[in-house]
């Protein structure tokens, strides 16, 4: 049951995009259509799963002070592997639209964040499920954003026309559209949470937007202290 919880938390309670606010760069860049979002989500899920498994397996052998470089190497290796695999076997049009974003998964906060916050402290199976759950949550959030943006911009879903004679609204396909739609999504998330808390008689305060699960800043502080 607790293992199932590790998987399910990434989808809603700790959704990487909508709750943890991690991985904003690919979220804003690739959510211009549902199809791109799906491709990016699957690629990121694979990297998350792989890196979480490997990192949790080797976590006891890696000294604390070099663990971030080690994690980066593992993540970069997985990203390069998926890039090669996609080039070889994925449909060419998906490659063309995702090509430049795949290498960017290396610096995706979600991947490093989960390695730091979860895989570096938990067992292999729990970490695998955490990675999978986070990946699925990321994919779903991205696809929801992508579907809304694509529909409002072109009146299509997965490049299939839903409404004919749609008045094109290009703004939503461009980067500003990503910010607008994301803001609307976050508002809806908060409203739902406020209602839920109100039902239980509590007041909801949104979490302070810190890098709570990323900890990269702590690491940077550590370096500074070390230098001083």
């Amino acid at each position: 049951m607790s293992l199932f919880k590790e998987f399910i938390k990434g989808i809603w309670k700790e959704n990487p995009v909508l709750v943890l606010m991690l991985g904003m760069c690919p979220t804003l860049a690739v959510s211009s259509s549902a199809k791109n979002a799906l491709g990016m989500g699957i690629a990121t899920t694979f990297v998350l799963l792989g890196s979480n498994i490997v990192i949790s397996a080797v976590r006891k052998f890696i000294p604390e002070k070099v663990h971030i470089p080690c994690y980066i190497v593992v993540i970069a290796a997985f990203v390069t592997i998926i890039e090669k695999l996609m080039k070889a076997y994925a449909p060419p049009e998906l490659n063309a639209s995702l090509g430049i974003f795949i290498p960017l998964i290396v610096v995706n906060c979600i991947v490093l964040g989960r390695a730091e916050a979860f895989a570096g402290k938990n067992g292999v199976i729990a970490s695998a499920l955490d990675g999978l759950g986070m990946g699925v949550g990321f994919t779903l959030a991205l696809m929801a954003l992508g579907a809304v943006r694509e529909f409002i911009a072109d009146g299509t879903l997965f490049e299939l026309q839903v409404v004919s004679n749609w008045q094109q609204f290009v703004l939503l396909k461009l980067p500003p559209g990503a910010f607008i739609v994301l803001a609307v999504f976050l508002t809806i998330m908060n409203v739902i949470k406020i209602r839920q808390h109100a039902k239980e008689g509590k007041t909801y305060t949104p979490p302070e937007l810190s890098c709570s699960s990323c900890r990269l800043c702590d690491f940077a502080k550590g370096i500074q202290e070390h230098q001083n």
Partner: peptide, 17 residues
Amino acid sequence: SLGMVCLVASAALSWVN
């Protein structure tokens, strides 16, 4: 430890390549 991680990673990459 960092060298070992790099070595294994590059071995895996060269095989995939």
